[in-house]
């Protein structure tokens, strides 16, 4: 392809690079459990690019959504109209999620640690938090039952922490707690996709490592945002910049997105 649409663009935001990286990671995936905000946009963009057969599953009870507008939340009525199936949350969590039908789930959080464990509950002490966050929603059972988890969140030092204030959803746990993963069907966090870089856990310690930095982001800038001594994979590379086509699809998907991101 030599047309303008496949040309690399240099006119994009870090947040667009993050959405496009998440959409690309869904190549070939059949079923994805969609979270609120940016993951919503990434999944809808993936369906229009690398994963045309992608079925969107929402914890609100929707399988095979075909939203005609960018959903304002995971409970938006546009997810219902035209969907393959709309079921009770008992069926969604019991049969679809726990039943193993979810290939990839996209999750986020206020804090993540080096093993991909997530905090979406509190900053500070649970009983007297300085910031009360939303809590689990479905995240705990999603992290435990989806076949694989991709984390999508902004790379910020206050989010990438040495120690979580609260472990809401398990990633690879800590090495001393790893035995507790025995009862967890999920393979756990595979990727952490951010606005500056992409990380994976492909080492025996299941520790987050840099695999791809986005154009314009130096290793130093990335390391600066991380609260522990970051590993850098031997094969770490530079992310391919967005094409014009990817950008136009993402921008189209974001139209009418309200403030959901």
């Amino acid at each position: 392809m030599n047309d303008a649409k496949s040309q690399a663009s240099d006119d994009y935001t870090p947040s667009e690079m993050m959405i496009i990286s998440a959409a690309r990671a869904l190549a070939g995936v059949r079923t994805v459990f969609v979270g609120v905000g940016l993951p919503n946009i990434a999944c809808n963009a993936a369906r229009r690019t690398v994963a045309p057969d992608l079925e969107l599953i929402y914890e609100s009870g929707v399988f095979g959504a075909r939203p005609e507008r960018q959903p304002l939340s995971i409970g938006d009525p546009t997810l219902v109209t035209g969907a393959t199936s709309v079921v009770s949350m008992a069926d969604l969590f019991g049969f679809y999620l726990q039943g193993g039908l979810v290939e990839v789930a996209l999750l986020g959080g206020a804090q993540i640690d080096r093993h991909g464990n997530l905090n979406s509950s509190v900053i500070g002490d649970y009983r007297r938090p300085s910031v009360r966050l939303p809590g689990s929603g479905g995240a705990i059972e999603i992290a435990i039952n989806a076949q694989r988890v991709f984390v999508v969140m902004q790379l910020k030092r206050r989010a990438f922490v040495e120690k979580l204030d609260f472990l809401t959803s398990p990633g690879h746990l800590s090495e001393s707690d790893r035995g507790r993963r025995a009862g967890i069907p999920s393979e756990g966090s595979q990727l952490v996709i951010t606005d500056k870089a992409v990380f994976d856990f492909a080492n025996s310690e299941r520790e987050m490592q840099l695999v791809s930095r986005h154009p314009g982001c130096s290793v130093e800038q990335i390391v600066d945002e991380i609260g522990w001594n970051l590993r850098i994979a031997d094969a770490a590379r530079l992310t391919t910049p967005p094409t014009e086509k990817e950008l136009s699809i993402v921008r189209d998907c974001r139209r009418n997105a309200g403030r959901s991101d």
Binding site: N145, F166, L167, P170
Partner: peptide
């Protein structure tokens, strides 16, 4: 579901590794 069907508890694959059962 447990409340509606008069069961003593409901089993689910969740909470392993989470701090929530601790609080």
């Amino acid at each position: 579901i447990a409340g509606a069907s008069k069961l003593p508890f409901f089993p689910l694959r969740s909470y392993l590794g989470s701090d929530l059962p601790g609080v």
